[in-house]
Amino acid sequence: MSDKRSHTDKVLEATYSSSAAALSQIAASWHRSIMKHGLTPDEHRAPERITQSELDERRKVLDKFLMVAAPRLDSLFSLVGQSGCAVLLTDADGVVLDQRMAEADAPTFEAWGLWAGTDWSEEREGTNGIGTCLTERRRVIIHQGEHFHARNTNMSCIDAPIYGADGRIVAALDVSSARADQTEAFNRLIGAQVAQTARAIEEANFRAAYTSARIIVAECDDAEAASLLAVDDDDLVIGATREARRTFNLAGTGPLTALPAADILGREDGPTGFERAERAAVIRALARADGNVSQAARQLGIGRATLYRRMKRLGLDES
């Protein structure tokens, strides 16, 4: 029996099992691929690729986001590129918008469809790193034979979702490997770096969306999530990342109704106290500026005099 036939049988068996989908997230995705999206694991068609004009239009919509993400994609690729991995960034539909890969590996990735303009939604490609990450709204590792299509079982894909400033998923960050000897243990190491980079992009994109606001870093349970609040000059919270929205019971998506920061964070002592959060933000800015108040004020997006008043209220001096 061929490997391809064996994989197809495995997918079909799990899909029509009465319990497999309930016990395994991979089997649940296989089940969606067949029963919801009407796909078959042994089909031969190549991944769908949109036209260059359509790709240009999608990139234009996310132009600012792509600019923020680019240097962080470069950094991630510098860590994983020499091991035969490609770094891909998609939009919320699973269409690849940007990529990083070694020149020697490019023909392999292009042949597999891991290329700008290709649609890797779960609706189109079944279980895969990009599509399943976006569908299940979580970090995933799809290792070789866990892919739905038999033609994709030579690759390993490690993904994390990226949420926009409005709390909605804006992209998926993917690292895909062309190595046949890629191990699951190595995938987990890459997964940690992918999650960290996704958080860095999410945080930088949020800050770019609120350049005139003061950004407060709030504590949260998830160390790999960006929990940020944007506060205006009147101490009203005007923006929050997805994790901050969850932590403080704010609207999950869309614009926020401006609320006093004190009402959201509280002024009681404790890990989410407003005074503690604001004090920590000011101390971090001063530390980054090596004690230069003017520079710290610029980092916080407020005037020098305003920062002095807040330092006095918080019991901080220039030392």
Score class of each variant (00 low, 15 high):
residue 3 D to H: 09
residue 5 R to K: 10
residue 12 L to C: 03
residue 12 L to V: 04
residue 19 S to D: 06
residue 19 S to E: 06
residue 20 A to D: 10
residue 21 A to W: 09
residue 22 A to G: 13
residue 22 A to P: 00
residue 24 S to H: 00
residue 26 I to W: 05
residue 27 A to H: 10
residue 27 A to Y: 05
residue 28 A to K: 13
residue 30 W to P: 13
residue 33 S to D: 07
residue 33 S to W: 04
residue 35 M to K: 13
residue 38 G to Q: 08
residue 48 E to F: 14
residue 50 I to A: 12
residue 53 S to Q: 09
residue 54 E to I: 06
residue 55 L to E: 13
residue 58 R to V: 12
residue 58 R to F: 09
residue 63 D to Q: 14
residue 66 L to I: 07
residue 68 V to K: 00
residue 69 A to T: 05
residue 70 A to D: 15
residue 71 P to N: 02
residue 71 P to V: 01
residue 74 D to P: 03
residue 82 Q to T: 13
residue 82 Q to A: 12
residue 88 L to I: 04
residue 89 L to S: 09
residue 90 T to Y: 01
residue 94 G to Y: 10
residue 94 G to C: 00
residue 94 G to A: 06
residue 97 L to T: 08
residue 98 D to M: 11
residue 98 D to V: 04
residue 99 Q to H: 05
residue 99 Q to F: 03
residue 101 M to V: 08
residue 101 M to F: 06
residue 103 E to N: 05
residue 104 A to K: 09
residue 104 A to V: 01
residue 105 D to A: 14
residue 108 T to C: 09
residue 110 E to M: 05
residue 117 G to R: 08
residue 123 E to I: 04
residue 133 C to A: 07
residue 135 T to V: 05
residue 140 V to I: 03
residue 141 I to L: 11
residue 149 H to I: 00
residue 156 S to G: 14
residue 159 D to M: 04
residue 164 G to C: 04
residue 170 V to H: 03
residue 170 V to L: 00
residue 171 A to W: 02
residue 175 V to A: 08
residue 183 T to H: 12
residue 185 A to E: 15
residue 188 R to H: 06
residue 189 L to Y: 14
residue 189 L to M: 13
residue 190 I to Y: 05
residue 192 A to N: 13
residue 193 Q to S: 14
residue 193 Q to K: 12
residue 198 A to F: 03
residue 205 N to C: 11
residue 205 N to Y: 10
residue 206 F to K: 07
residue 206 F to Q: 02
residue 209 A to V: 03
residue 209 A to W: 01
residue 211 T to S: 15
residue 212 S to G: 04
residue 214 R to H: 03
residue 215 I to Y: 08
residue 240 A to K: 11
residue 240 A to D: 01
residue 241 T to H: 05
residue 244 A to H: 07
residue 244 A to F: 09
residue 244 A to I: 11
residue 246 R to M: 08
residue 247 T to N: 01
residue 248 F to D: 06
residue 252 G to V: 05
residue 254 G to Q: 10
residue 254 G to I: 05
residue 256 L to V: 00
residue 258 A to L: 05
residue 259 L to R: 13
residue 259 L to M: 15
residue 261 A to P: 02
residue 261 A to L: 12
residue 262 A to S: 15
residue 266 G to K: 08
residue 270 G to F: 08
residue 273 G to T: 12
residue 274 F to S: 00
residue 277 A to L: 09
residue 287 A to P: 00
residue 288 R to D: 14
residue 289 A to H: 06
residue 289 A to R: 09
residue 291 G to C: 10
residue 295 Q to N: 12
residue 296 A to I: 15
residue 298 R to G: 06
residue 298 R to P: 08
residue 299 Q to G: 09
residue 300 L to W: 06
residue 305 A to D: 13
residue 310 R to N: 12
residue 312 K to P: 00
residue 312 K to I: 14
residue 313 R to L: 06
